[in-house]
Computed example of a mutant assay.
Amino acid sequence: MPANRIDLEFGEVIIHDQILIAKLDEGVLFDTESNQKLLDLGAEIFKGEDYGYISHRIHSYAVDPMVYRKSAEVKNLKAIAVVSENEITRRNANEVEKKFYKDNNCFEVFKTLEEAVEWIKTRI
Rank of each mutant, 00 (worst) to 15 (best):
M1N: 10
A3S: 10
E12G: 01
V13S: 03
H16L: 11
I19M: 07
L20T: 07
L24R: 09
E26C: 08
E26Y: 09
G27A: 09
V28K: 09
F30E: 01
D31C: 02
D31V: 01
E33F: 13
S34L: 13
S34P: 05
A43M: 12
E44Q: 15
E44D: 12
I45Y: 08
K47E: 15
D50T: 14
D50Q: 15
G52S: 07
H56P: 05
V63M: 00
D64N: 01
P65F: 06
R69P: 07
R69T: 14
E73C: 13
E73K: 15
V82I: 14
V82H: 03
V83A: 08
V83H: 10
E85F: 01
E85H: 05
N86Q: 07
N86E: 06
R90S: 09
R90L: 02
A93L: 11
N94L: 13
V96Y: 13
K98N: 06
K99I: 01
F100A: 01
Y101I: 09
C106D: 11
E108L: 06
E108Q: 12
K111P: 13
K111W: 14
K111C: 11
E115L: 00
E115P: 02
A116R: 05
K121D: 01
K121V: 00
K121N: 06
R123W: 12
